[in-house]
């Protein structure tokens, strides 16, 4: 263990000359990185806002006055409000089971939780059509009982949950693994109930990771397009989420409107990133402890 030495080395001023590249190379690499990011990330983002405001603010706000736009906003909020808490509870439960206990087949379980990450969004939507569609596995049963799943809010929620399924669990598992079980054990031996130990020991330890992952999960839940597009049915004012509304406006040659609604979603993305950066900046220590970058 070389605790003291490591810390000192980290605090000492870095002799740049030997462990960094020459000034020219530094400039070149920085230039390449910034140019690349500008071309691929910043420019598309600016395009969204530029196009949205192409005809001024009045036209911009007109896009949100439409009842269809409002109902799309409402639906998107509803879907996120159901799917994010669901994934939150699942993520915490899964992380607790995986991080705090040893059991066989753990890595298989983690891989399965990861799976929705690498499944094409289109496939994510389609599988629910195959299960709940009227040609599907349980389709006849639900139709008999008058329950509409696909092409209604439940289907959209399910597809969204699937797509965002790993977000919170995958953030919490390594965080909680790294923190180990010592603190909880201490609390328990001191007489706290399990739930109490979770609330007062575990939760404070993972709070920033939790908040961060909830934010990202929320951004993705509100922005999902491919999967939702397959199960939505595109009924105006009923099953259109914001991203689908963008597509509809775009297909109605209402480009300003499409980009205006898109800018709302882009704004959401920006807010997410800003909060995330602020969290990282203010709580760098806590986050680093949890393995955040």
């Amino acid at each position: 263990m070389s605790e003291g030495i490591t810390l000192e080395a980290a605090a000492a001023p870095r002799p740049r000359s030997v462990i960094s590249e020459g000034r020219g190379v530094r400039w070149l690499l920085t230039g390449i990185a910034i140019l690349f990011l500008a071309l691929f990330l910043v420019l598309p983002l600016l395009t969204v806002f530029a196009q949205a405001l192409a005809r001024g603010w009045a036209a911009y706000f007109e896009a949100f006055a439409e009842p269809d736009a409002r109902s799309a906003i409402r639906l998107t909020l509803t879907v996120a409000a159901i799917s994010v808490p669901f994934n939150l509870v699942f993520g915490v439960a899964a992380a607790w089971a995986i991080a705090k206990f040893e059991f066989p087949g753990k890595s298989l379980l983690i891989t399965l939780i990861d799976l929705p990450f690498s499944v094409s969004p289109v496939v994510s939507g389609m599988i629910y059509v195959l299960v709940f569609g009227s040609q599907g596995l349980f389709g006849a049963f639900f139709i008999e009982h008058g329950i509409q799943i696909i092409f209604a809010v439940p289907g959209i929620v399910l597809a969204t949950i699937f797509v965002t399924f790993p977000f919170i669990a995958r953030e919490l598992i390594p965080l909680m693994q790294e923190q180990g079980t010592a603190e909880e054990e201490a609390a328990l031996t001191l007489g706290a109930s399990g739930w109490h130990a979770f609330r007062t020991v575990t939760l404070p330890n993972i709070r920033w990771g939790l908040l961060y992952s909830v934010l990202l999960c929320n951004a993705r839940a509100m922005g999902e397009f491919g999967a939702v597009s397959v199960v939505s049915g595109h009924i105006r004012g009923l099953t259109n989420t914001l991203p689908l509304h963008v597509e509809i406006l775009y297909n109605e040659y209402n480009f300003v409107g499409a980009f205006a609604v898109a800018s709302l979603l882009a704004g959401l993305a920006l807010v997410t990133l800003v909060i995330k950066s602020v969290l990282e900046w203010r709580y760098a220590g806590d986050l680093a402890a949890g393995g955040r970058h």
């Binding site: 263990m1 070389s2 605790e3 490591t6 810390l7 790294e178 923190q179 010592a182 603190e183 201490a186 609390a187 001191l190 007489g191 706290a192 007062t200 020991v201 330890n205 220590g285 806590d286 680093a288 402890a289």
Partner: peptide
Amino acid sequence: CSDRIVVAHPPAPTFP
């Protein structure tokens, strides 16, 4: 380094 984890951990709360 594993020791840094130690540094970063908040002290375990003490319970009566």
